[in-house]
Amino acid sequence: MNTKKSAWNKVQNAIGLSEANAADLNDERFLYLKTRIAKLEKSFRFARIPESDIGINEMLKSVLPLMAPKDPVGMEFERVGRSYDGGYVMVKHDAKDRIAYSLGINRDVSWDLDIANRGYDIFQYDHTIDKLPQDHIGFHWKKLGITAANQRTKELSSLDEQMRQNGHEDCTDMLLKLDIEGHEWSVFAELPSETLSKFTQIAVECHGFDRIQKLPWFRTTKEALENLYKTHQVVHIHGNNNSQLRVLGGFPMPKTFELTLLRRDICDFTACSRVFPTELDQPNNPNFADHFLGNFNYF
């Protein structure tokens, strides 16, 4: 009877019945509810708590070293583009071909304008707009989005295909900027090193880290970062403060990062001496505090 009463207390708390209802609860109904509560307790016991989940912790341990910034020896940094959202901190280094690819435009071409004013031709892609917010003689825009080659549609093309159409197969020193709302992972996961190596510097907004526990997202992201790591080194990192900083698997993580990567043959790299955000960084949203990331070297 004591065992039944103890179990009844769990049932009572779970379904909100008063103690007076106990007398009206027949044994069959009681056993059903007791079994149901036991199943619920078991499922809750193993439910993932993202902040402390050991699986997420292991996932992040496998990708965070690929994102850890290093200092480029003998190089300086500058901000390219506007203040706040739309600008990127990049290494001061000219790409000999004077060609840049800008994937994802929306309402902002400040990065494109800064680069075009240095004498570059900017090849721009965005299928979500009907015209550019501002024109420039160096702009070449197509109403196309960019994704992985195996995901192409009438609205979406691949970077390799557009480079072929533009006659850039033999170029070896170009710039690349991407803000394509998650498609960056599939793009980088499939691009061969031969194509990636054509870009001296890559500035990219990386989305979706709140989905780290989703295995398809994790696998594609890990493959993309490993692919980039072969040819480029992360030299700058910034957390986009338009979303909250979260703890995932024990690590403080923004939902979205901005990464700058420099091709490995351009210079030597040493351990990072900077703390992020740096004085060149701007919060994406000036109404919120910027995300403090330290030096982002966990290992």
Rank of each mutant, 00 (worst) to 15 (best):
Q162M: 04
L228C: 11
V235L: 09
P254H: 02
E194H: 06
T195L: 05
T256N: 10
C206T: 09
Q162Y: 02
K230W: 03
L248Q: 11
H236P: 02
W141Y: 12
F209E: 15
G167F: 10
T147V: 07
P252T: 07
A148V: 03
H232V: 00
C206Q: 12
E190L: 13
D126E: 07
F251S: 04
G208S: 06
I202R: 13
H140G: 08
L245P: 01
K131T: 10
Q201L: 12
P133R: 08
P192R: 10
S243M: 09
I180D: 12
R246M: 02
E184C: 05
D160V: 05
Q134R: 15
L225N: 09
R246H: 05
W185G: 03
T172D: 14
E184H: 10
D173S: 12
P254W: 01
E190W: 08
V234F: 06
W185S: 09
T172F: 14
K177S: 12
H127A: 14
L245I: 05
E181C: 11
Q201C: 10
G138E: 13
E155H: 15
I129L: 15
G208A: 09
Y229M: 06
F188K: 06
D170P: 07
L215H: 02
L245S: 05
D135F: 04
K131P: 01
S193Y: 14
V235E: 14
